[in-house]
C-alpha cells in the first residue's frame, strides 16, 4: 500500500482541494473520491487525510462545519473557500507546468 509519504510534497493538498471544488464532502467521502477517481492507483492511508484537511482549514483554503450525513449521522463537512479556489487554480497551474516539464525531459533522448 502506498502511503502519502510517496505522494509528492503538496500533491495531497492539491488533490483534496480539487475534490472539494466539486462540492462539500466529509473526510471519508474525500478518501473514497481519491481512491475511485485514481482508479485505486493513489491509495492514501486514510488516517493521514485528516491532518491534511485540518491544515488546509487553518490556511483558510477550506471551511468546515458539522452537519448531518445521508444516513442522518453527525458528520463534519468540508468545502472550498474563495481563497481555496484561488489556491487550487494556482496549484493546478503549477502542477501542470511541473509535469509538462518532467514529460518533456522524459520524452527526449537520454544523455
Amino acid at each position: 500500500m502506498k502511503s502519502n509519504a510517496d505522494l509528492l510534497q503538496g500533491t495531497l493538498d492539491l488533490l483534496v482541494l480539487h475534490i472539494l471544488s466539486g462540492g462539500q464532502q466529509h473526510g471519508w467521502g474525500v478518501a473514497q473520491a481519491l481512491k475511485d477517481r485514481s482508479q485505486d492507483r493513489l491509495i492514501v492511508t486514510q488516517g493521514s487525510l485528516y491532518p491534511a484537511l485540518h491544515r488546509l482549514e487553518r490556511e483558510g483554503w477550506i471551511k468546515s462545519e458539522w452537519g448531518l450525513s445521508d444516513n442522518n449521522r453527525r458528520a463534519k463537512f468540508y468545502r472550498l473557500s474563495p481563497a481555496g479556489k484561488r489556491q487550487l487554480e494556482l496549484e493546478t497551474d503549477r502542477w501542470r507546468r511541473y509535469t509538462a516539464g518532467v514529460d518533456l525531459v522524459l520524452s527526449g533522448a537520454p544523455g
Partner: peptide
C-alpha cells in the same frame, strides 16, 4: 487497517495545532 495508526494521527494533529 485502512485508516492506519489512529494514535499517530491524533499526535500529528496536536503537534500541528501547537505549531500553528
Amino acid at each position: 487497517i485502512d485508516f492506519g495508526p489512529i494514535e499517530s494521527v491524533r499526535e500529528e494533529m496536536r503537534a500541528q495545532a501547537r505549531t500553528y
